[in-house]
Amino acid sequence: MPVPALSRVRHLGLLAAVVAAWWAVSTHVLDESTRALLPPPQAIAVAAWELATSGDLWRHLRDSLKREVIAFLWATSAIPLGIAMGWWRAVEDQFDPLVEVLRPIPPLAWIPLSILWFGVGDTQNEFIIFLGCFFPILLNTITGVKGVEANLIRAARCLGAGEASVLWRVVLRAALPQIVTGVRVGLGVGWMALVAAELVGASTGLGFLINDARTVLRTDYVIVGMATIGLVGLGIDRAIRVAVARLMPWSRAMSR
């Protein structure tokens, strides 16, 4: 439902107050020596402009996004696996213990081992993002498949659908909204893991940008990097929501 512009503006009241407080603290509370820790909003805007026009920001953003996309593509292997686990009991029985052991290990805990395996660089970063993406997609796919209404499957069977048709034409479609939820969560977790991986194991990317800026006390660049990470994460999430509303108009009716 479209929100009227006026009420949208009203929703931004608190945000505006926080920015104003930030400005006040930075200019009137902090002195020359500590101001570097929290530069005022306008200094951040200037830094953002610098980074954007020099092309540095885009280069780091491009490298980060590339890693996210590659890792995500690998992580989509969770979809067929999740369908198999949700559909065939024997597959679930075999894979479930393995998944249960691996799943609670945070992707970040894999960073040391992954550096030893892959060295510092793209592959290691992608591996960490892959781990972040994989499990949310897997678990949501399994839940989606198991949650398919029994009568939809029965209806398909009595209309003459065989096992393959039931899986492809009914189970996959019916589970799709839940699978997309997994993709959304997975991309979000992956994006967070990416930044952490880049903090220690990369020489490009947004995570590297903010860590590198820290070492030279460029707080303004750190904050620009952080804001970019946040905005891009939000953008990815919004894009998926819009795509779902466009491509699966029936999915909202289904989850009711």
Binding site: E149, N151, L152, R154, A155, A156, C158, L159, G160, V170, R173, A174, L176, M248, W250, S251, A253, M254
Partner: peptide, 16 residues
């Protein structure tokens, strides 16, 4: 099999 089709109480239409 299609020789015996069912009409369900909850319709069971494919929403997509």
């Amino acid at each position: 099999a299609w020789q015996r089709t069912v009409v369900f109480q909850d319709y069971a239409l494919f929403p997509w």
